[in-house]
Structure formats: C-alpha cells, structure tokens
Design a protein around this nucleic acid. Structure first.
Lengths: 249, 249
DNA sequence: GTATTTTTTGCTGTTTTTTGCATTTAATAT
DNA sequence: ATATTAAATGCAAAAAACAGCAAAAAATAC
C-alpha cells in the first residue's frame, strides 16, 4: 500500500468518525503503529487533521451537520444510544435491530471496543462497515422495504443458528402490562427469533412509546432484561416497569 | 511499444484503479522500472496524475474507497446498466453483484417489470428497497468493509441454496485468455458461488478492464454467457472474445 | 544509401525514503 | 505513587529515487 493512499484512508476515517485511535488504524491498515504515528504527524503538519495523544481528531469537528437528517427525537435517541454503548464489553457478540435508535447506537459504538455484530438492518450494516473494530455479519432474508431489514423464514432460520451475548432491539409499542407489541406480523416473528437468539435482550425505546400497545405481541415485558429510555431511571414514568425483573438504565 | 501509448496505458490504469505501483506497471508493460518512473514523472509534470513514492495516484482520488460519490466512468457504467436492464423479463429471478456498475443497474431497473432480486451488496439492497416492483432478498454473511458485500462461508452457503435465471456480476480484471481474475481471494470465492447459483451469467465490465489480469482466478471466459461493455458489440477490442461462446451486448 | 545527432532505454552504484523494532522518555490512568 | 500506554529517538533493513553512463533506436543531415 502506498504511503499517500494510507494517509488518504486515515484522513477519510477521521472525517467519517471525527476521531480515530492510532492503534485502530494501525490494525486495520496492517502497518506498525510507528508508521501511523508518522503519517498522522505529517497530516497534522499539513493541517489536515489535529493529532492528539493516542489518536487524531477532525478539524471540522463542529460542522458535521450533513448527517443530521430528520430523525424524529434524535436527541433522545442519542441519549439512549450512549447509555446502550456503555454496556458494550470488549469481545462481545451482539445483535443490532433496525430502526433509528439502533442506527444511532451503531454510530456511537466506541472505536476501542472489539465487537462482533449481527444485524438484520441494511443501514446499520452500512454504518458498521465503516468501523474497523467491528466484525459485521448481515442476516440475510427478504427485505422489508420500509424498515430496510431482513424478514421472513430465511432470516428467522439464520437467526436460529446464532446465539449472541446481547441483542439491542427496538419496538413499535411497549406497555408494562401488555409487553412489546407491533403493527406488523412479520416484524413480530423476526423479533421473536432475535430474542430467542440472545442471552440477554436490551430494549431501546423513547419514553413516548411507553404505555402504548398494538395488535401483535412480540413478548412479555419480563422477557426484556434491560430497558433503556432517554429518561433518568428514577423517573416516575418508569415506575410501572420496576415491579418486573428489568434493569432500567 | 510507443512511449505515447505506454503513457496512455499508465494513465488509464491510474484512472481505473485510482492508484498504481510503479513495479506493477513495469512488470505488466515489460519495461524497466526506470522507464515507468520517467513516464510517470512526465505525466505528473503535465498534471495528468500525481506521482508519489512508489507509485502514482489519480487526481480525482480524494476519499478512499466505498464512500466517495464521484464514480469513475459513470457514463460508461450507465450505458452498460441500460443494456443489462434490457435483458430483464417480467417475473425473472436475478442476482446482482456489488460494485458501482451493478448499483447503476439497480437504479435503472424499470418500474414496470416485476422482479425477484438476490444480492450480496448492501448498497444494492438499499437501492432496490425503494422499488416497489422488486422483491429484494439479501444474502447474509460477514460484511467485507470496503466493498460492502457479504462474503465468507455463510454467504457462500446461502448462495448454494438458490438458483437464479440471471446473475449480473462485475469483475476486477477480465482477459480473453486468462478469464476473470481478482485481487482478492475472498471475492473470488463468492463470485464462484454466484456463478454456480446462476443458470446464466452476465458480466458487466467497462472496456478499460479488458485484457487485464490479476492473481486469483474466478472463472474461464467461457463460463460467461453474456458480456456487456459500453462499446458497440462490433468493436475491435471485443474481437478476442468472439471466438468464445459468449454473447456480446 | 551512410554518417551524425538526438532521443530513448536499461543498467550500475549511490543516496534518499520508508518502515519496523528496541529503548528511552513522557503522558495518562488507577 | 505506580502502572499502563503513548511518544520520541536512534538504528538497521528494504525499497525507491536519482544520477550518470552506454547501448539501442529514431530522427536528421549529408
């Protein structure tokens, strides 16, 4: 690999993630840390990025508004994603659901944690593919157009052959009594398969969805091991869930 | 070989692959490294490319790989995609490979043709999911980060369980004698599985890739049933392929 | 046609650049 | 404070660039 090419890669990684670790780059480019250090030093001298202890950060760190599309309740979802990210342990094997909250989580996965991540979501897989520390495995199947996730018998079968440490899932509706419910039958089947394939299931949901239900049931609320909302765990709105054996973050 | 001719070759190689190594060029053109060095030096002085230590880089090469929006030779790829789209029949079951040419084909699939489309490519699957007339099935597997396609044993296994009418594939390099070759071993394995899963295989390749080889072989040229380039089928450059049992579009 | 000049090309030895490793020094975390 | 991690430094091997030279090829002159 050419030196110039390598530096370009480093630069685009920095632009993409706003910050990088030298060790990550060295690993993903398969060169020594010294080489990366020297590259970053040069790029810093050329004012292409800013070198910091252990890594580098993008110059235009503030003006990264391009990505901020119109995701509903993005701020809340980022809060949730950050809480969820704090649960990630090095070497873990996890599953990520579709939906904008899980997509935020994918974006916020720390660069220093090695993960193996299964997903049924095309956007999540795309996002994760830019992370050198994450091994991404896409679950194939028929694509549900709206949600851009794999569904159907094939996806369910594929899920039946794995077992992950944690799955992070979203839901259409959640209620302390009725549990997790969905508008869509196919989605329910997939989520059931996901839960079955997980040692622990983590529900990510904005507080607006609390105390709502719909026609098809995914699972009882007890099936969920951890529930994450944007609220403080002591918030009154969550009290109904505290009677169950659910950890609230 | 004429000097002009050689420099033209170097230039198109750079454009095609974004970067070249001087040693590779010297090897493939069968001239000394010094000659290539001098050529590249001249081309650099003429601002046709950028010379770097050990090789040269295309001027339009800014961001590394997958995420750069300006697709090289887009016009030619659109011509190819249009020709390929004309092969599509209502009710067909097809496979689409990764790569920018196949992505163009995905974009150009007519709205009035009902299709079932398998793919290993995340961007292709995303693109197709916006088309109401196409049933999309994603082939799961480990995601190759650069190419954003599913690779590995799981993907190959999944492919072994399907059989499509047509597969549209790209290739890194193609030659009338050496057949289809790639830079990457994993990619070769996947492509082999794709070909096996297809009744007919259609190769999409811009003409610049003709008469080029690399280290790992995907298949003989005879394996391909139809070959589509941006050129007129009668073009001289394609004559070497006419001796084989290949339909040229 | 031949002779001469110019250009091109490949080779040789030398210099420079790049890279990885080991060691020391500095910074950060616990 | 101590342990851990990153940075700086010097060094050596490998690769690439460079300069100069001579043979070959092409262009030009005679």
């Amino acid at each position: 690999m050419l030196k110039e090419e390598r530096q370009q890669t480093i630069l685009s990684e920095v632009e993409l993630h706003n910050r990088i670790l030298l060790t990550d780059i060295a690993d993903s480019l398969d060169v020594s840390i010294d080489t990366v250090r020297r590259d970053v030093k040069e790029l810093d001298a050329d004012k292409k990025l800013r070198k910091v202890h252990g890594g580098a950060i993008s110059l235009g760190f503030t003006t990264n508004s391009a990505r901020n599309q119109n995701i509903y309740a993005l701020d809340q979802k980022i809060i949730i994603a950050k809480k969820a990210a704090s649960m990630l342990k090095d070497g873990a094997v996890i599953f990520l659901d579709g939906g904008t909250t899980c997509l935020e989580l994918a974006r916020l996965i720390p660069e220093k944690i090695e993960l193996t991540c299964f997903t049924i979501s095309l956007p999540v897989a795309m996002e994760l593919s830019s992370k050198s520390n994450v091994t991404v495995i896409s679950i194939g199947g028929q694509i549900a157009k709206e949600a851009q996730i794999s569904i159907g018998a094939n996806a369910i079968h594929n899920l039946s052959e794995i077992r992950v440490d944690f799955s992070f899932i979203g839901t259409g509706y959640v209620d302390a009594i009725y549990g997790l419910t969905e508008f869509d039958w196919d989605i329910v089947q997939i989520k059931k398969a996901v839960i079955k394939a997980s040692k622990k299931t983590v529900l990510l949901s904005i507080s607006e969805k609390l105390n709502s239900q719909h026609r098809y049931k995914t699972c009882d609320i007890n099936t969920i091991n951890t529930m994450i909302t944007e609220l403080d765990p002591d918030n009154q709105l969550l009290s109904a869930f505290k009677h169950h054996d659910i950890k609230i973050l």
